[in-house]
């Protein structure tokens, strides 16, 4: 903690004051190690995507020759484009379903104490059960209403799946809203719906965006439910498509890396652009 005062890394101070210097040095080394640990697997996969099959077996980091052919090959041999489209459609629709249900409900539960203490506890308790619990009952339910193996069915499943998460994230945002504005609008004669739409939702926008993105990513990344509820290329999502590589007699590592990278790009772009919202959303729970 002595190091807090030396916020700038200037050679003079840390040489003169040994303990501070050691701390600073350890911190830089630690940071470097952390960064390396977290990005190395990604870099290695990127490198593998540029290697030929014999080059992959050699195990080096840098490709011996840069082999671009994996990219068109992966795109043509498996339906990466279709999988990607399916994932984006199911995840986006799913996140919208989640928000449409969760925003008014969370507002009512937190602001008007609908359901008392029981309902919030119950909502969070449903999150504890592993998804395998819902797998078979959902399958039979979807089958009976003809939504197995449809993107619409997947979107509904994802929409419902993320409700507890959305409630948990949104409730901390709702709690921070000033009540006075809603009260003022109400005194001016605005009804429940117009208070919600004109006052609450605009004020809640940062929370809604954060929650929406997190739900979108959770749905985009989901595998277990998708692998069971989608059975054909026209509905399978990207994680399911990627898992199909595992069935090959000889794994096409290069193409598998390419397909994985293509799948990552949308989420990483989302993470970069909406970094602030994402972090605000993720951390909303721990700061209450």
């Amino acid at each position: 903690m002595t190091a807090t005062r030396v916020r700038k890394f200037d050679g003079g101070t840390w040489l003169a004051d040994a303990p501070v210097g050691l701390w600073t040095l350890a911190r830089w080394a630690g940071t470097a190690a952390v960064v390396l640990f977290f990005i190395f697997p990604m870099i290695f996969m990127l490198m593998v995507s540029f290697k030929t099959q014999p080059d992959i077996a050699s195990g080096g980091l840098i490709p011996e020759e840069w082999f671009w052919q994996n990219y068109p090959d992966a795109w043509n041999s498996v339906a990466v484009g279709t999988y990607l489209r399916n994932s984006i459609v199911a995840a986006t629709l799913g996140a919208l379903v989640t928000l449409v249900i969760a925003v008014p409900a969370t507002h009512a539960i937190v602001r008007y104490r609908v359901g008392g203490k029981f309902l919030p506890a119950f909502i969070l308790a449903t999150y504890v059960a592993p998804p395998i619990v819902a797998l078979f009952p959902l399958f039979f339910l979807l089958r009976s209403i003809g939504l197995v193996n449809t993107l619409f069915g997947m979107a509904l499943v994802y929409g419902v799946m993320n409700l507890p998460v959305a409630f948990w994230l949104l409730s901390s945002f709702v709690r921070r809203l000033p009540e006075e504005l809603e009260d003022a609008a109400r005194i001016d004669g605005a009804g429940y719906g117009s208070v919600l739409l004109r006052i609450t939702v605009p004020l809640l926008m940062p929370g809604i965006i954060s929650t929406g993105i997190i739900c979108l990513i959770l749905a985009y990344n989901e595998f277990l439910l998708a692998s069971f509820l989608t059975r054909s290329e026209s509905t399978q999502t990207l994680p399911v498509g990627l898992s199909l590589y595992q069935g090959d007699r000889q794994l096409r590592y290069g193409q598998m890396s390419v397909a994985s990278l293509i799948g990552i790009v949308p989420v990483y772009l989302l993470a970069m652009f909406f970094q602030r919202w994402l972090i605000r959303g993720l951390t909303a729970g721990s700061t209450r």
């Binding site: 990604m42 595998f223 989420v267 990483y268 993470a271 970094q275």
Partner: peptide, 22 residues
């Protein structure tokens, strides 16, 4: 740093598995 460490979290678990398989 924050952006970088955010990325593993955003990665689909299937892809995390592929990375570690490699």
């Amino acid at each position: 740093l924050r952006t970088l460490i955010l990325l593993p979290l955003m990665t689909p678990p299937i892809t995390v598995a592929v990375m570690w398989q490699l």
